[in-house]
């Protein structure tokens, strides 16, 4: 079972890279050279490795966010809108608390970010569980709505930076170090694993996720559990936004979350929603991102190649290359 999933993901990645290589050939460059540059750019030096980890962290948080929601049948497609909400909350709190003690501001910003992200995550969830409306449609619309709202806020509201050539928000002066972001992420992942494997909430979540009808008939509070999974999903996205905003960006730029939108889902699918699998999947996406920087510097291959490879990875990760029924026929009898 597990072996099959590993082989599946590896196959998906291989095919994706082959397809990417064909694309490179098409533009008249050498695939081997391109990939060696990518590899060097992501794992070739201490600095490259640091970058890879830096880009993997948001992906892994989003992958867990996607996975926890997906377990309860909620397809959490609106990471983008959650990131925007959380970032807006951070900058707004930062502007409103000018002159307050730094530690208090940090706490308030984090709390606001988490709450905003949870709220954004709950809207599609409520539509799905409460009304039976496709969370996918609502989630996608939310992404567009929040993207526009963010643009409006950073162009016309009190958090807009006046006199800049392109629209952006005022900067947030507080910041969080890379080390503490990394450590917190590791702690969060370990905690998540512990809760899922060893505790009553984890047990309930897994039962509701696998069979909501059974959960209902057995008296588990399924609605509450499903909504809690959306809360956890939103919380993880919020934490991701905190790391990005307070750790690296400090300013909201137009469309800054577009790039990250579907990454969590890709990593989760690639890792077959397994703890270690999702970590590896995130690392791959992080490596692609950090490697693409060197790619533009050294070769003439455009960095968008990485987008293609990502698209292919995702595309082939959806396919079950080794079908379970075929397997059963061979192994079962």
């Amino acid at each position: 079972m597990r072996n099959r999933k590993v082989i599946n993901s590896v196959l998906a990645i291989m095919i994706a890279f082959i397809m990417g290589g064909l694309m490179v050939l098409l533009s008249g460059d050498s695939p081997l050279e391109t990939y060696s540059v990518l590899l060097k750019g992501s794992f070739g030096s201490l600095n490259a490795l640091k970058n890879t980890i830096r880009y993997s962290i948001p992906v892994v948080l989003l992958a867990y966010s996607f996975s926890v929601c997906n377990q309860c049948g909620y397809f959490n497609i609106s990471h983008e809108s959650q990131m925007y909400s959380a970032s807006l909350a951070i900058v707004m709190v930062s502007e409103l608390t000018q002159g307050w003690p730094s530690w208090l501001r940090l706490i308030l910003m984090m709390a606001a970010a988490c709450m905003a992200s949870i709220a954004a995550c709950m809207i599609p969830a409520a539509a799905k569980f409460g009304l039976g409306v496709s969370e996918v449609v609502v989630g996608v619309m939310m992404n567009y709505l929040m993207a526009y709202l963010t643009k409006h806020m950073i162009a016309f509201s009190f958090i807009a930076q006046p006199g800049s050539s392109s629209i952006m928000s005022l900067p947030v002066s507080e910041s969080v170090g890379a080390v503490s972001i990394t450590v917190s992420t590791v702690v969060i992942i370990l905690l998540y694993q512990f809760v899922m494997k060893k505790t009553i909430p984890g047990y309930r979540l897994s039962v509701v996720g696998r069979n909501p009808l059974f959960a209902n008939a057995s008296g588990l509070p399924s609605m509450r559990i499903m909504l809690s999974s959306a809360v956890v999903g939103g919380l993880l996205t919020g934490i991701c936004a905190i790391g990005e905003m307070l750790g690296y960006y400090h300013i909201i730029y137009s469309d800054f979350a577009v790039d990250i939108g579907f990454n969590g889902m890709t990593a989760a699918l690639l890792g077959a929603q397994n703890a270690i699998g999702m970590l590896l999947g995130s690392l791959l996406l992080g490596a692609l991102k950090s490697g693409s920087v060197l790619l533009t510097v050294v070769t003439s291959v455009p960095a968008e190649l990485v987008d293609c490879v990502k698209g292919f990875v995702m595309f082939f990760a959806t396919v079950t290359f080794i079908r379970s029924d075929v397997w059963m026929r061979k192994g079962g009898k």
Binding site: M23, L26, S27, G28, F75, I77, V136, F262, M265, T266, L269, P302, E304, L305, D307, C308, V309, K310, G311, F312, M314, F315, A317, T318
Partner: peptide, 22 residues
């Protein structure tokens, strides 16, 4: 279908971005 659709969207966006160059 939804998963496949999202990968198609990602792929379409990546391909068109990339191919614009060559």
């Amino acid at each position: 279908p939804v998963v496949c659709a999202i990968s198609i969207i990602t792929l379409a966006s990546g391909l068109t971005r990339y191919l614009l160059n060559p």
